[in-house]
């Protein structure tokens, strides 16, 4: 049941992405409206999929690779939709849908097997810590997309060569603001994720901090974002350097998520 829902939502996202790309090229408003609806429908199906899987597994489905990445995609999709509800950024949807589909693809390729929960994870901290951390990652992903869009737009304006993006992407100011909004949601959540993890670690492993690779990389990532947020608020860092920093910091997020599991291991690496 949950798998069927997953596949439906995957197809939905994929359709939405194709439509969004068609809209990006054609700038036809009917196409945009349609792609928005499909994307929203896919996100709703995806939500149902996660709920269904919760009942099938009997625990919060954020433990395996498939579950984590799927939840990541879900966080990106709903993070985007929550922004859309507040304010719109021209053609943001196209980029978001591409990233969502990419994550869904990775999730689809991973094993969908439901594994029994290892004793360490059998705690009500699991939904709290893991969901906060991944929702934070969702917003940081959106910030990264904003950064990429900023760089594309800025490049054309700076080089005075107007190609595909100049007319289609929003103003630099709007993209910079988007970056800031996403960070101002994502960074506190990320901080909360680390704190909740630390508290849970105290309960599960007896110490707040283990210098386990995942923890270390989370901290490195946190410092990157903290530096960015700090520079933004104190000296008004913005624009291209901020966009590049956002992208680098998000790469650190991805490494924390996957690189650590596969390359470094450690007690935190459940989702192999």
């Amino acid at each position: 049941m949950s798998y069927l829902l997953f596949q439906f939502s995957f197809v939905g996202y994929f359709l939405a992405m194709s439509m969004y790309i068609a809209f990006f090229v054609s700038q036809n408003n009917t196409v945009r409206l349609l792609s928005r609806r499909i994307f929203t429908a896919a996100a709703i199906l995806h939500t149902l999929n996660i709920i269904a899987r919760y009942y099938e597994a009997g625990h919060t489905p954020i433990t395996t690779q498939h579950e984590t990445v799927s939840f990541f995609a879900w966080a990106i999709a709903w993070g985007y939709l929550s922004f859309r509800w507040r304010y719109s950024v021209k053609n943001f949807g196209t980029f978001v849908s591409v990233l969502t589909v990419l994550f869904m693809l990775i999730a689809a390729l991973a094993s969908r097997e439901i594994l029994p929960l290892v004793p360490a994870l059998q705690s009500w901290w699991l939904p709290v810590h893991a969901s906060i951390a991944i929702v934070a990652n969702g917003f940081l992903a959106l910030a990264c997309i904003g950064g990429i869009m900023y760089l594309l737009q800025e490049r054309e304006i700076k080089r005075k060569h107007f190609g595909l993006f100049y007319s289609r992407l929003p103003s630099l100011d709007a993209l910079d603001k988007l970056n800031q909004h996403c960070l101002s949601v994502g960074f506190p959540l990320f901080t909360l994720g680390i704190i909740s993890g630390s508290v849970w670690a105290k309960q599960a492993w007896g110490a707040y901090w283990h210098w386990d690779p995942k923890e270390t990389w989370s901290l490195i990532t946190w410092f990157l974002y903290a530096a960015l947020v700090h520079l933004r608020f104190t000296v008004g860092w913005r624009g291209r350097p901020a966009a590049i920093m956002t992208i680098i910091a998000f790469l650190a997020v991805l490494f924390t998520l996957w690189g650590v599991n596969y390359l470094l291991g450690g007690i935190h690496s459940y989702a192999k």
Binding site: Q153, I157, Y166, P170, S171, L172, D173, A174, K177
Partner: peptide, 9 residues
């Protein structure tokens, strides 16, 4: 137009 693309408002 360029000013709009840079500054938005």
């Amino acid at each position: 137009e360029l000013a709009r693309k840079i500054f938005g408002q």
